[in-house]
Design a binder for these strands. Structure first.
Lengths: 202, 202
DNA sequence: GTCTATAGGCAGATAGAC
DNA sequence: GTCTATCTGCCTATAGAC
């Protein structure tokens, strides 16, 4: 599962703890002291692995992007048709939700204007990756008839990303994962082939 | 427009500045020093108006909720049919977007776990208000035929809120308001009556 | 790689003069 | 209502011993 690797070395364990803190409280919402306490070492030792917090942030985002990318590869390998893969993609977010966390990148997007430039760029790259993957998926689903045609694949991809990040935000504020499901389930159903849709008459 | 009242008294001017900072950097992303600098008075003077930052936060959220509620009343009075009112609602968010800000409550939702309890409760109340207003609107639109029937009004309301907050988050990270439009426009079109939709076959 | 010790800065907050 | 002055605490970060 995303964000739960073995965590052998100290650097890796630091990133694991930092990830949980960042997904819960935000990148500006935790300190080296929090990590040190959770890990059982002193603050100063953390600087040996990540000299500055900006370094830590870049490493965090980099690892998250790689892990996410691997998860997408897994879906591509085992996922079945486009609709099933879409559900697999949504499941990635559900797994984060049930642990009372936000998507790291949704959280960082809120903090965007306070982030160091390299993190801002990495953040956009993450969203671009996801948008590209989703766009490709929707396009293939429309072509082979698993997904409803009509809307542009790229617009569907952006809508999905927005709805996912927004639904997590809201659901967590109510400490109610059902809100997440209530939003996503109808959206998925609506994308499925077999639903038809005529353009609005004027 | 939301967040741009006359700002007569000092307390009101403080809230105005704090709102801009909170919508841009987050509630934890600004300090009394930032407000003092923008307003041209000393930090200590701010405490006369808002003894603690938690007090400031509560006042901020309270005023935002009231202003938003007034904006909804305006839409109710002048809005036309349900679809037009829906567009009016979306416009409230667009106005925030074009100023490179987030919805205050979307931002606070990200910071949820670090907020004082009273702010957490006020935040949920804000979302509940919006959900209620939207649900009522969708229900009436479905009944008089302006909006497509099928999905439950409450689910539509939640989906809209999620998509709006999420789309703002993403669009701001790309400093590209068009991303916001690209998400919302198809969603609105899809809700409009004249679009039909059959349940998925299995 | 981890420790102690400490620097330098900024946070929220208070006391008391004007 | 605003000011100066100050407090306390936490933050990121560094130096140098072990």
């Amino acid at each position: 599962m995303l964000g739960t690797r073995p965590a052998n070395g100290t650097a890796s364990r630091i990133l694991e703890i930092a990830l949980g803190l960042a997904q819960t409280r935000g990148f500006n919402g935790f300190s080296y002291a929090d990590i040190a306490a959770a890990l059982g070492i002193r603050k100063a030792s953390l600087h040996h692995h990540f000299p500055t917090k900006a370094d830590l942030g870049r490493a965090l985002l980099s690892r998250y992007t790689v892990d996410f990318s691997k998860a997408l590869d897994d879906i591509d390998r085992t996922g079945g048709d486009a609709y099933a893969r879409l559900k697999g993609y949504v499941r990635l977010y559900e797994e984060v939700m049930v642990r009372d966390r936000l998507c790291l990148c949704g959280m960082l997007a809120a903090e965007y204007s306070t982030l160091p430039k390299p993190m801002q760029q990495a953040l956009r790259a993450f969203f671009d990756d996801n948008e590209r993957w989703l766009t490709k998926l929707v396009k293939s689903g429309q072509q082979n008839g698993t997904l409803r045609t009509g809307p542009l694949p790229r617009d569907v991809a952006r809508m999905l990303l927005s709805a996912l990040e927004g639904a997590m935000l809201l659901a967590r504020s109510f400490e109610d994962p059902d809100r997440f499901e209530a939003v996503l389930q109808p959206i998925l159903a609506d994308l499925r082939s077999g639903n038809t849709r005529k353009a609005a008459r004027h």
